[in-house]
Measured scan of single mutants.
Amino acid sequence: NITNLCPFDEVFNATRFASVYAWNRKRISNCVADYSVLYNFAPFFAFKCYGVSPTKLNDLCFTNVYADSFVIRGNEVSQIAPGQTGNIADYNYKLPDDFTGCVIAWNSNKLDSKVGGNYNYLYRLFRKSNLKPFERDISTEIYQAGNKPCNGVAGFNCYFPLRSYGFRPTYGVGHQPYRVVVLSFELLHAPATVCGPKKST
C-alpha cells in the first residue's frame, strides 16, 4: 500500500531547467500520482495528452512514469508532439509516433530571460542525422557541412553544433522561453508502482 505522493513538484518547480539538447529525465516510481494538482495549476500554456485522457489519469496505474524537462522557445512547443519535424524534434528531443503521455508547457519569461540576454539555454542546430525517439545527444563535436574534414576547428563550413537562445524579456511570445515537462507513461508486464489516488488503496 503506497502512500507517499509522487515528487512532481520537484520537477515542475525546479529552480533551473535543462537546455533542450541535454534534456533532463527523472524516473518516478513507487508513489501516488495526483495529476489533478498539475491539471489545476493555472499558468499552463499547453497540457496535451496522447493515448490517454488527462482527466482519467487519476484512475490509472503505470509501471513507471518518466518526467523529461527542458526549455525551448514558445514557437517550438508545437514540435513536442508525435510525428513532428523541425530543429527541436529532429536534433534535440524526439517523441515516438506511438507516444503515451502528456506534454505540459508554460511561459517562463520572468524566470529564464535576462536584460542583455540569458545565454545559458542551448539547443542543437546541426546534426548529421535525426534523433531516434528519446535519444539524447550531448556531443559538442564540430559539425562538418562541406567535404573538408574540420579536425575539431570551427570555421568555413565547420560549425559548433550548439546555439544559444539568448532570451531577453522584451522578445515577442514566440521567442520567449517556455518550460516543458513531458510525462511518459510506461506500461510493462510488471507490477504497477505509480497509481492515481483512487487506485492506491
Rank of each mutant, 00 (worst) to 15 (best):
Y171M: 04
K26N: 08
Y159C: 00
T55V: 11
L95H: 00
A81L: 05
T201D: 14
D68Q: 03
D98P: 10
P43R: 09
T100G: 05
Y35D: 07
N107M: 04
R127H: 05
S19L: 02
P197W: 15
L162A: 02
L183M: 09
A105Y: 10
P96M: 04
D59Q: 13
P177R: 03
R127G: 07
G146S: 07
A154R: 11
N24E: 15
Y123A: 15
K48R: 14
G74I: 01
S69L: 04
W23R: 01
F17W: 15
N75E: 15
G146V: 01
V103F: 02
R179F: 00
A89N: 04
P161R: 04
Y121L: 12
Y21P: 04
K128I: 08
N157E: 00
F156V: 09
F47A: 09
K128C: 07
A190P: 13
Y121D: 00
G101K: 01
G83L: 09
N58H: 11
S29H: 14
Q84N: 07
P96I: 02
N30K: 07
G146Y: 03
E135I: 05
Y66A: 07
E76K: 03
D59V: 09
I72A: 05
K148Y: 12
S200F: 14
N40C: 06
P169W: 04
N58E: 12
L122T: 15
L125R: 04
N64M: 10
L5R: 14
N87M: 15
R27V: 15
F126R: 04
K56Q: 14
V182A: 05
K26H: 09
D90I: 05
N92P: 01
H189M: 11
C102H: 03
D98R: 11
Y165S: 01
Y50Q: 03
E76S: 08
S200G: 15
H189V: 11
V181A: 05
K56H: 14
A67K: 03
G86K: 03
P96G: 09
N130Y: 10
Y121G: 01
D90Q: 15
T193C: 09
C195I: 12
D9F: 13
N92F: 01
C195F: 10
N118E: 09
C61Y: 07
G152I: 05
Q176G: 02
W106Y: 11
P133H: 07
P169D: 04
T201K: 15
K94G: 04
F99W: 11
N107R: 06
F156L: 06
Y91A: 08
N75R: 14
P149V: 09
D68S: 03
A22E: 11
G116M: 08
R73I: 04
H175C: 01
K56S: 14
R27G: 07
A190D: 14
N92M: 02
N92R: 03
R168F: 01
C49Q: 01
L5H: 12
N118S: 06
P54H: 12
P177K: 02
P54T: 10
F17G: 04
T55C: 06
D137M: 03
A154T: 15
V37T: 14
N75P: 05
D137P: 03
N120L: 10
F41D: 08
Y93K: 02
G152S: 12
D137T: 03
I80P: 01
F41A: 10
R73K: 15
L187A: 15
L57V: 08
T85K: 12
E141V: 10
V173N: 11
G196E: 12
N1R: 11
F126H: 06
P7L: 08
D137V: 04
D112L: 03
T15D: 12
F45Y: 15
V115N: 11
Y171T: 04
K114V: 10
G116R: 08
Y165P: 04
W106N: 00
I138W: 07
A42D: 08
K110A: 10
N109D: 05
Y159K: 00
S139L: 07
R163E: 10
E186V: 08
D137A: 03
S200A: 14
G152V: 06
K56M: 12
L183G: 01
T100W: 08
V32L: 10
N107P: 07
Y35V: 12
A105C: 09
L125N: 05
D137K: 03
R163T: 15
F160H: 15
A154K: 12
P161E: 03
W106S: 05
A46C: 10
C31T: 07
N130A: 15
L187V: 12
V153W: 09
C6Y: 06
Q176T: 02
V115H: 12
G196Y: 10
E141R: 09
S36V: 06
C102G: 03
R179K: 04
K198Q: 14
G86V: 02
G196F: 11
G101A: 01
A154F: 04
Y178N: 06
H189Q: 14
L125K: 03
R179N: 00
E141I: 09
C195L: 12
T201C: 13
K148L: 12
S69D: 03
L125Q: 10
V173I: 14
Y50V: 03
Y91R: 09
Q176P: 01
S69R: 05
N147M: 06
A192S: 12
G101S: 01
S36G: 11
G166E: 01
N4F: 09
S19M: 04
S129G: 14
Y50W: 14
W23C: 01
I2V: 14
G83T: 06
N75M: 15
K56Y: 07
N13F: 08
K26T: 14
V180K: 01
D68C: 03
L187R: 13
F8T: 04
N130L: 12
I104V: 10
I28M: 15
A46G: 11
C195N: 11
Y159A: 00
A81E: 08
S108H: 01
P197G: 14
E135S: 09
G196C: 10
V77M: 09
W23G: 01
N24Q: 14
L183N: 00
S129H: 13
Y171Q: 00
E10P: 05
T170W: 05
N75A: 15
L111I: 14
P177A: 07
S184T: 15
L187C: 14
E10C: 08
R124F: 00
S184W: 14
Q144G: 07
R27H: 12
K148S: 13
V173G: 07
D34P: 07
V32K: 11
G117V: 03
F47Q: 07
S69P: 01
A192E: 12
T63D: 13
K26G: 03
N75T: 11
C49V: 02
N107I: 02
V37W: 13
W23T: 01
Y119N: 10
K114W: 10
G101M: 01
E141H: 12
Y165N: 01
S53L: 11
